[in-house]
């Protein structure tokens, strides 16, 4: 467990020293969301209807933007190899890196979402549902994305390839995440969507670090 926490702490510290990278993907999220009203027109009723979907798609893309950096720097300077050789569990160290990625790329999106939701005319309960869905969904995005990041580590055209591999796997998170807000908007109970998102998250917490570790070992061979 101390290895897990140490790995989180290290990545957070590194990110603090290079703040621009985290802030860039956050602003990417804001800009993508702001482009939609310009593209589809400023009618409040329409914007209110598409808001959850737009925020979710933007969150997907913003998470994707931070993924190539997840292992790349550590791979280049050999840190990743040392982690694989270290006596503490490689899986826990990798899980720590994924958790740090969520804290840096996922959590800020959750906190920023209500502000952008206001621009789309969502009311307070709808914002609450949106935030809760993103809170359950963004760790899922980091976990699944980590598998893709590990598979494309050091590969030609890694960034674009990563998007191709990971985006289809993000679809269930997108459906249930945006579906929760949509169900709430239609006056239905969003509980089922939250339960399914939480179930997917539990599944991913169990399997994703394991698959990521296996993929990293292939890349390190």
């Amino acid at each position: 467990m101390s290895a897990f926490l140490a790995s989180i702490r290290r990545d957070l510290l590194l990110a603090l020293r290079r703040r621009s990278e985290v802030i860039t993907s956050l602003f990417f999220f804001v800009i993508v969301v702001s482009l939609f009203p310009l593209g589809i027109g400023p009618e409040p009723a329409l914007l209110k209807k598409v808001a959850p979907g737009v925020l979710w798609v933007a969150a997907l893309l913003a998470t994707l933007l931070g993924l190539p950096r997840l292992f790349a720097a550590d791979h280049i300077d050999g840190t990743l190899e040392q982690m694989a050789l270290s006596p503490s569990s490689f899986g826990l160290l990798v899980a720590g890196k994924i958790a740090a990625h969520w804290l840096l790329c996922g959590l800020p999106l959750v906190l920023l979402a209500p502000l952008l939701g206001l621009q789309f005319g969502l009311d307070a309960p709808a914002l609450g549902v949106l935030m809760l869905a993103l809170l359950l969904g963004t760790p899922l995005l980091s976990l699944i994305g980590a598998i893709g990041a590990a598979l494309t580590l050091g590969v030609r055209g890694g960034g674009v390839l990563l998007a191709l591999l990971v985006l289809p796997l993000y679809i269930p998170a997108l459906i249930f995440g945006a579906g929760a807000a949509e169900a709430h908007g239609a006056g239905l109970d969003a509980g089922g969507h939250f339960a399914l998102l939480a179930a997917l998250l539990a599944l991913a917490v169990f399997f994703a670090p394991w698959a990521t570790t296996a993929a990293l070992k292939v890349a390190l061979e």
């Binding site: 494309t152 590969v155 390839l161 191709l164 591999l165």
Partner: peptide
């Protein structure tokens, strides 16, 4: 995705 990863 599978084909692209293998060929990369």
């Amino acid at each position: 995705g599978f084909i692209a990863l293998q060929s990369a």
